[in-house]
């Protein structure tokens, strides 16, 4: 028994060096050559960092495309979902409220135009994407507020949208931050 205890302690010490020092340092070194140098890819506008490509942020102004509802208000140091069950009456009231508010800002919409992702909170609370349909319903509002033609905005959405992986697998998405940065750049 004593032999096992000593062996266990020594083996633990050796493995700590291998698995917790050597292994992550190799990964950290290699990661330094990735797009964001291992710290996450940033998006800049006029030389200023305005966010991370993968981290969604809150958009409420009418001249921007809006992201999904977030149960943590896009707090990127405290991710979280709503964890509301599908039958929870308070939750269903909340969803109804979001529908009403969307209809208020987009009076030209019918309820059946609204895709589910625009009125439900994401899992991480930091979802950077919306569905293509989610972007489509906002085009008219954004175009009006920016005094642009719907066609211009619609073309930009099409350009920014990401299709399925290799054209075959998974959903199509629109990265909200990228789209909004592209919009701002359009103005000049």
């Amino acid at each position: 028994m004593k032999k096992y205890i000593l062996q266990s302690i020594r083996l633990t010490a050796v493995l700590l060096v291998l698995l917790c020092v050597i292994y992550p340092l190799i990964v950290a070194f290699a990661g330094g050559f990735s797009k964001g140098s291992g710290g996450g890819e940033k998006i800049t506008q006029n030389g200023k960092v305005v966010g991370y490509a993968l981290i969604g942020q809150s958009f409420t102004k009418p001249q921007y495309f809006w992201g999904r509802p977030s149960s943590v208000g896009y707090k990127a140091d405290g991710s979280g979902g709503s964890n509301k069950g599908p039958s929870n009456p308070d939750y269903l009231k909340e969803v109804n409220g979001r529908i009403d508010s969307l209809l208020k800002y987009h009076p030209y919409l019918k309820r059946s135009d609204i895709p589910a992702d625009m009125v439900t909170a994401s899992g991480s609370g930091l979802d950077p994407d919306i569905s293509v349909e989610g972007a489509a319903i906002q085009i008219k509002r954004v175009a009006m507020n920016r005094k642009l033609s719907e066609q211009t905005v619609s073309d930009l959405v099409k350009k920014t949208a990401n299709g399925p992986l290799l054209g075959l697998f998974g959903p199509s998405t629109v990265n909200v931050l990228e789209l909004n940065v592209a919009l701002d750049n359009l103005k000049k």
Binding site: R68, G81, S82, N83, K84, P86, S87, Y91, L92, V95, N96, I99, R111, S112, D113, I114, P115, A116, D117, V119, T120, A121, S122, G123, S124, D127, P128, D129, I130, S131, E133, G134, G170, P171, T173
Partner: peptide, 28 residues
């Protein structure tokens, strides 16, 4: 999709989205 949300008249084209991420979608 969620039948309670379907009753609100919302389009759940790809399925239930609460707690899910757009880049994965409900299927996977």
């Amino acid at each position: 999709g969620n039948p309670a949300i379907a009753k609100m008249g919302i389009s759940q084209l790809t399925g239930a989205m609460e707690g899910k991420e757009v880049r994965f979608g409900p299927a996977i």
